[in-house]
């Protein structure tokens, strides 16, 4: 590398300064959640700003989970169940369909793929009202499966798996054919175990998306027993009286699992976004 000139050094220093300032701003909301979650209401609303809780009020969390009107446990349990189920089944259905569209010769292949692309263009804005009607008709309102079901099928995931399997090495399948495996055996024993990276990437994105989604659970899960953690948070905001310390403790509990997932799975998430972003 050539030596940097004075001007370049200055420019670089400036860039670091701006990036650092932005980084601090980006982290402030996280700081605020933690700060407020560990304070009493009086401390939060005190006119004298206190930067750090000197005596963290850990009992806020105890209070939150003991609060029968907050439904925090219910929300967390529902969200975990909904997001995990969606992750597993959406990946299974989409990888099966994607594999078939890419690798199993059929006369209907083009038509089916075309229809998948067509549904890809349907925005949620147009389907949520009639899907609610459908759910009301089959008795899915206020049930967990009613919240889960529409998210199990993603045209986008099918499309991405198809693109992935188009470039899948055919030697693996040929080896399976030699061993007398049918398509099901090849898919289950050879293709799936060799798709771990893409399953992880798209799976984490499906999990995160489902955990954070708001409109559909709000529409279909009106009873507290089917609330997700996002609905619990929103109810805090729209409730009659607002308990600030519980509210921020709830926000921390709702956000923390995903921040951990992001920090540990960042590589897969970035790959997933890159893979899907470049394909749009």
């Amino acid at each position: 590398m050539h030596a940097r000139t004075m001007g370049q050094k200055l420019q670089l220093a400036l860039r670091y300064a701006v990036l650092s300032a932005l980084a601090i701003v980006f982290l402030i909301p996280f700081y605020l959640i933690v700060r407020n979650a560990l304070m009493t209401d009086a401390q939060i609303t005190s006119p004298h700003w206190q930067w750090f809780p000197l005596h963290p009020v850990w009992s806020n969390f105890h209070e939150l989970f003991a609060d029968k009107t907050a439904f925090m446990w219910v929300g967390l349990r529902n969200s975990a169940f909904i997001a995990t189920t969606t992750l597993v089944l959406q990946m299974l259905f989409a990888s099966m369909a994607g594999y078939a569209l890419a690798r199993i010769p059929s006369r209907a292949s083009r038509t089916v793929f075309g229809s998948v692309l067509l549904t890809l263009m349907i925005p949620g804005a147009v389907t949520f009202v009639p899907t609610f009607a459908l759910m009301a008709w089959v008795g899915g309102v206020n049930t967990l499966w009613g919240v889960i079901a529409p998210g199990l099928f993603s045209a986008f995931s099918i499309f991405l798996f198809r693109q992935f399997y188009l470039g899948f090495p055919s030697e693996i399948e040929e080896a399976g054919m030699m061993d007398g495996l049918g398509y099901a055996g090849i898919y289950w024993r050879l293709v799936l175990p060799n798709s771990k990276a893409v399953l992880m990437s798209l799976g984490v994105l499906a999990f995160v998306g489902t955990w954070n989604t708001f409109l559909w659970p709000l529409v279909v899960g009106q009873n507290p027993s089917s609330w997700t953690v996002q609905i619990v948070l929103s109810t805090f905001l729209t409730g009659q009286t607002i308990q600030l310390h519980e509210l921020f403790a709830a926000a921390l509990v709702a956000v923390l699992p995903l921040v951990v997932v992001f920090l540990f799975m960042q590589r897969y998430i970035v790959e997933g976004i890159t893979f899907s972003g470049g394909k749009e």
Partner: peptide
């Protein structure tokens, strides 16, 4: 740092 807010929901 810039990516981590993506983990947070709109509700939160």
């Amino acid at each position: 740092v810039f990516f981590i807010p993506t983990a947070v929901s709109y509700a939160a």
